[in-house]
């Protein structure tokens, strides 16, 4: 599912990742742990082709990212679910509009979109907030909404950047249970977090990123 071989990345002169190599198989649930500033977000951005590595080979869902062009990039990203560290919602759109966005972007029929949105809102317990703005719900609800938006198009791979940031242990475990359920359905999950204890509690494979390399 993910093959990273000797991948390096630097912001101008500042080297962030140096010859990073690892593999994630289909259906795996993997944690990428490391302290703040260790390059977790950068590594995730490389995985969804928001950044281009300066060296090495990177392949995600069987797609070599070096050969990805402007035309095939949207198709590639539609196969991936993304949960951002800051959630990234459209501030002037309601919760149901934000949730429907990925379906609208792929041109899903409005009737199907409406059904999927209702189903997911019910599953994450936000049906009663459907007309609220993202800023009007709690942090935990925002995380759940971000996960729901990431999975609404049934991606084969879910990349989550600090999905439990700012949540207490109980709410963090709730979010992890949600991700575990998705993994159980066959979705490959790759979670970047600085909370090593939480990763250990979940009893999943852990990749540690430190000083720009994998340990």
């Amino acid at each position: 599912m993910i093959q990273m071989h000797q991948v390096s990345f630097s912001y101008d002169e500042l080297s962030v990742l140096e010859k990073v190599s690892f593999r994630v198989e289909r259906g795996e649930f993997v944690f990428l742990v490391g302290p703040s500033g260790s390059g977790k977000t950068t590594l995730l951005r490389l995985l969804y082709a928001d950044l281009i590595p300066v060296g090495g080979d990177l392949s995600v869902i069987g797609q070599k990212l070096a050969t990805l062009d402007k035309v095939s990039l949207p198709y590639f990203r539609q196969k991936i679910g993304l949960v951002f560290q800051d959630c990234k919602f459209l501030a002037d759109k309601t919760i149901q509009e934000n949730l429907a966005l990925p379906q609208r972007l792929v041109g899903m029929a409005p009737r199907v979109t409406k059904e999927n949105v209702n189903k997911l809102l019910h599953q994450i317990g936000l049906s009663h907030h459907r007309h609220a703005l993202p800023t009007e719900i709690s942090g935990n609800e925002q995380r759940r909404l971000a996960i729901a938006r990431a999975v609404i198009n049934n991606p084969v791979l879910l990349l989550a950047d600090a999905p439990t940031e700012g949540l207490d242990l109980r709410l963090s475990l709730e979010v992890m249970a949600l991700l575990d359920a998705l993994n159980f359905q066959g979705m490959t999950i790759f979670v970047a977090t600085s909370d090593r204890k939480l990763a250990e509690k979940c009893n999943k494979r852990i990749i540690e990123l430190r000083d720009g390399g994998i340990h």
Binding site: D50, P74, R77, Q78
Partner: peptide, 8 residues
């Protein structure tokens, strides 16, 4: 954001 979500 829309580009990251796969917008054409």
């Amino acid at each position: 954001l829309m580009k990251l979500l796969g917008m054409f």
